[in-house]
């Protein structure tokens, strides 16, 4: 062992800075979070051990249920729409002459360059009631105004617009890379059989693209479960009041941060984080297992 260390110390030395940061700012906080979740703590007075009380409080809170209801609705709509749009974009570009394809590819990718919070801030002023471009145009052509950002019926869709607008270009690039990997010979064979473009997409592109589609879906799923910045900006939220009208855009991460920084219930906020981690890890592992099956 001693000799080993002597020979290998240089390796560990080079790894030290990374792992020091990793442990102090990633591993330790997770353990610390689990520890905190068993205490009632406002961050100021002495923490008081309460066992699983925080967990039952969080699980029974009305806002938690709302937040999870919202996130399920959101994920189930935004991920498929996002995938379909990105796929259509990828197909559009794939079918173009190369020169145009590159131009459109850059243009479609442009929104993905814009940070999410910024996209939300731009769209907020396009969708705003009475002063937003969409509603001003609606009223100019005599349509009923839509309170995109305050009417609970529409708020979720406003968020989805922002989300798809930002992420479609990103997923499109990944899908194009996937499509490019499909062997040309498969298409040639189909052409011999007299398949048209549409049949080609259905019979060759989509089945061949399944691993890529699967990856983008998983990725979209996991990031959608942690959605925070866009709804936060769209609803003009603060730690004291968040989620927008009737909490229609209240999501778990928002609720967690609000519990911590708004009501100073850090124990409950930590418990909230642990629960959310389990939910996300659960979905991730399911998808991981499916992925393994597909690959077989």
């Amino acid at each position: 062992m001693k000799i080993n260390l002597k020979r290998n110390y240089k390796h560990y030395l080079m790894l030290t800075p990374f792992f020091l940061m990793f442990i102090v700012f990633f591993v330790y906080p997770i353990i610390y979070g689990i520890y905190t979740s068993f205490y009632k703590w406002d961050g100021i007075h002495i923490p008081e051990f309460v066992g699983l009380d925080n967990y039952s409080k969080v699980l029974n809170a009305r806002t938690t249920k709302l937040a999870y209801k919202n996130i399920i609705n959101y994920v189930l709509i935004t991920v498929p729409i996002g995938m379909i749009v990105s796929f259509i974009l990828a197909i559009i570009i794939q079918a173009m002459p190369r020169k145009w394809g590159n131009f459109f590819k850059s243009a479609y990718f442009l929104p993905s360059v814009i940070p999410l919070y910024l996209a939300a801030s731009v769209w907020k002023w396009i969708l705003a009631a009475d002063v937003g471009l969409v509603n001003v145009l609606f009223s100019k052509i005599g349509l009923q105004q839509v309170a995109w950002l305050t009417d609970p019926k529409y708020m979720l869709y406003s968020l989805i617009i922002v989300d798809v607008w930002v992420s479609a270009g990103f997923n499109m690039i990944i899908m194009i890379a996937g499509i490019n990997d499909i062997p040309e010979s498969l298409y040639d064979a189909a052409k011999v059989d007299g398949a048209n473009k549409f049949q080609e997409i259905i019979n060759i592109t989509i089945p061949q693209l399944i691993p890529t589609l699967f990856f983008t879906t998983t990725w979209g799923f996991i990031s959608a479960l942690q959605v925070f910045e866009a709804p936060w900006i769209l609803t003009g939220s603060t730690y004291m009041s968040y989620g927008g009208n009737r909490n229609a855009l209240l999501f778990p991460v928002m609720d967690m941060l609000g519990k911590g920084f708004g009501s100073l219930k850090f124990g409950q906020a930590a418990a909230y984080g642990v629960i959310l981690a389990f939910v996300i890890l659960f979905f991730t592992s399911i998808q991981f297992l499916i992925n393994k099956k597909i690959k077989k």
Binding site: D42, G43, I44, T238, Y239, M240, S241, F261, G262, L264
Partner: peptide, 16 residues
Amino acid sequence: MGDDELLSSLTTAAMS
């Protein structure tokens, strides 16, 4: 800071 933001900043500042 805005009203709500000032309040939450003050409470977290007290905490830390």
